[in-house]
């Protein structure tokens, strides 16, 4: 298993006003697997993804990636671990507005003090169809283009795991299909593990396995 979540809990507040966003979740993902996490709005799927991605520490429980319990690590080594092992695609794209497309994509590599493999990045850009936009700033791109840049950035550092939170949430249906195809194509091509959070059943059906989250707990897991 490349990723394991053990007894994960995430609670907000205390006493009667306590909200159990995630409660007692056990979760495992094999290398190269494509998993979709589905559930209604507020079910806790994004919180689960943030916890397994090392962005939000659980109230209790443990996340193990490639044999490392990530929340036992101090903040800085965790940041280094994140940039090397995990690629994120956020729902709201989250590109750095002052950097152009190219710079946004190679940012995780640059933060690691390494040089990007230009042919590899160009290959991703060509695959995602945004090569011509490589010198543009994010503000002039459409939503679909920005999402593709976010996907390119997530893939650029060749992370072991790609986490995508509602990658098609802000896109029209045509763009959504394109992005998903590209995402799937990319992870297959580069042998990466993909976890997609979505409330869209069509998107979920593309995955090898679907995990349904209801009220902060895993209600069902369905192999496709």
């Amino acid at each position: 298993m490349i990723l394991q979540g053990k007894k994960l809990c995430k609670y907000y507040g205390t006493g009667e006003s306590q909200v159990k966003a995630i409660h007692d979740v056990d979760f495992a993902v094999a290398k190269g697997e494509f998993i979709s996490i589905v559930g209604q709005s507020g079910a806790g799927k994004s919180t689960l993804m943030h916890i397994i991605g090392g962005l939000d520490a659980p109230t209790s429980g443990e996340v193990i990636i490639n044999g490392t319990s990530i929340y036992t690590m101090p903040m800085s080594p965790l940041a280094v671990f994140r940039r090397r092992q995990i690629g994120f695609v956020f729902q709201a794209f989250n590109l750095v507005p002052s950097l152009n497309v190219w710079e946004n994509i190679i940012l995780p590599i640059g933060l690691d003090g390494k040089k990007a493999e230009v042919s590899y990045i160009e290959d991703i850009l060509n695959t995602l169809g945004i090569y011509e936009k490589r010198t543009s700033l994010p503000t002039v791109l459409s939503g679909g283009q920005q999402q593709r840049v976010a996907i390119a950035r997530a893939l650029a550092a060749r992370p072991a795991i790609v986490l995508a939170d509602e990658p098609t949430g802000n896109l029209d249906s045509r763009s959504s299909n394109n992005v998903l195809d590209l995402l799937r194509l990319s992870v297959e091509k580069y042998n990466q593990t993909l976890i997609v959070v979505t409330h869209n059943d069509e998107v979920a059906k593309l995955a090898d396995r679907t995990v349904r989250v209801v009220d902060g707990s895993i209600a069902a897991e369905v192999e496709q």
Binding site: L55, M75, F90
Partner: peptide
């Protein structure tokens, strides 16, 4: 978000 994609504290 730059921190999220791997910028360390230092």
């Amino acid at each position: 978000l730059v921190e999220a994609i791997g910028m360390s504290r230092s």
